[in-house]
Amino acid sequence: MKIKEIIVVEGRDDTVAIKRAVDADTIETNGSAVNEETIEKVKLAQKTRGVIIFTDPDYPGQRIRNIVSERVPGCKHAFLDKEEARPKNGKGIGVEHASIASIQKALEDVKQEWMGAAMEISQEDLIVARLIGDSKAKSRRERIGKLLKIGYANGKQLHKRLQMFQISKEDFIRAVEQINKEEKGSC
């Protein structure tokens, strides 16, 4: 599988994992202190080939994703679930621990960022769907992130991602109904 876009990853081990799974070029941020030189490389990559941000499903990875996305608009995003990014020994979390199949699937399910999208899903919708302000909100957000392939996000980030990736109200409702059905089945 050949990827035209340049993939932004956190470090050398992520690059190795990506190259094992697909034929692609990467830019490494070398941690969460993304410097100006790296941002300039990403801007050039975005102009010439496009960019896919593929960071770890943890706080530092989300921070890097936000910094790059803010400074370089219009990026695509690939997401892994935390379970897919854990090593067999259970220590740590990262793209470098994901299987080839998980990396390939994340890159097949890449999401395009769209800024200025109409707000189809409101904050009220998130409350009604029990994605914020509910004792099970975190686990429900984890599940909806997986179903919609937009990764885990806190309540505020979830609302932003739903807009940024132009998730339709219909897809949102279908995902919430699936979560409700799963919760009823586990009772």
Rank of each mutant, 00 (worst) to 15 (best):
K43N: 09
D171V: 09
T48F: 04
M115L: 14
I53S: 08
D56K: 03
A101K: 14
I144Y: 00
K160E: 11
F54K: 04
N35I: 07
E28P: 00
R63G: 05
I150G: 00
S122N: 08
R20D: 13
C187G: 12
M115G: 05
R86M: 08
G151C: 05
F172A: 01
E124Q: 08
G116C: 00
I7W: 07
Q166K: 15
E70T: 10
C75K: 04
K88C: 05
E170A: 15
K43P: 04
S69E: 08
D23E: 14
D125T: 02
G185K: 09
K169N: 04
E177N: 15
F165P: 01
R143M: 15
I53Y: 09
I127V: 11
K136C: 08
K88G: 07
A85L: 09
T15D: 06
N180T: 04
K181Q: 13
A21N: 07
A175C: 08
V42T: 04
E142M: 12
N180K: 13
R49M: 06
A137Q: 06
G31A: 03
K47S: 10
K169D: 11
C75M: 07
E37Q: 14
R12F: 11
A137K: 05
E182V: 01
V68P: 04
A78R: 05
A78P: 02
I6C: 00
I173S: 07
D25M: 06
R130Q: 15
Q112S: 13
K2P: 00
A24W: 06
Q62W: 03
D14Y: 08
P87G: 10
K105L: 12
D14N: 12
G90P: 01
A129E: 09
P73G: 01
E10C: 05
